[in-house]
Design a protein around this nucleic acid. Structure first.
Lengths: 116, 116
DNA sequence: CGCCGCTATTCAGTGATACTACCTACCGGT
DNA sequence: ACCGGTAGGTAGTATCACTGAATAGCGGCG
């Protein structure tokens, strides 16, 4: 029943990853693990990698291949200037959405103020 | 460039419409107009109708055909018990997402507290 | 040595959702 | 008869996340 989060993540997950990369560069496996840690337990492995490929192709991130002690080399992504602009847009869009949703929720909780 | 809202609406728009219907019953044309009014200027006409068909088929709303003075009859949708349960789930999922995003934004704005 | 587990990435196919771009239909006014 | 506003509907497309794999490097255990 509750696959809502899957659909709600569309468009948002991208912003989340860019936001993570704005804190510091990271690679796919690391990001996935961190997200699971934060409670996004149902984010599939492949999802993050596909997303990273997309944002790389759009030129929002720079990539560096760095050898790992244990396993194949890591692709470390870092946010570039264009990515930062896109992230700013993301936060604006997100704020717009949250404001509208908050208004709706308020109206539902206080039906007498239905003034419209 | 800024089609972010389109992707971010996926999964969210459904909740928004259900939330609107929880305030009072409404019909498609009315909902679309209201959304445009609220700043969702790029929501296409057809989108809402398709969404209403979906939630009706899932049994989240009840439908009543009511004649209009000007134009074809309206299909007035109202949230039923199952829809209310689904809406509750939506708010839970939404809260989870906003909390995570707020945490992320806070961490970015205060990078010295990166403690993790 | 061979297998397993962990790290790390990639990919083809599927499903859900919103958009584009239309079409149908009812009504009143010119 | 036509047009604009009201009202609903649909086929095709694009995007995005998920499923379920495969590939590859490395270390440890029997």
């Amino acid at each position: 029943m509750v696959k809502q989060v899957t659909e709600m993540l569309k468009g948002t997950l991208e912003g989340i990853v860019l936001a993570i990369l704005s804190v510091r560069p990271a690679y796919g496996y690391e990001i996935t693990a961190w997200l699971r840690d934060q409670g996004f337990t149902d984010i599939a492995e492949g999802t993050i990698y596909a997303l990273l490929v997309r944002i790389e192709q759009r030129g929002l991130v720079d990539v560096q291949k760095i050898p790992s002690e244990k396993g194949p080399p890591r692709k470390v992504y870092s946010l570039n200037a264009q990515g930062q602009l896109y992230l700013d847009d993301f936060w604006r869009t997100w704020s717009f959405l949250t404001e509208r949703l908050e208004q709706l929720r308020d109206r539902i909780e206080r039906p007498q103020e239905e003034g419209e």
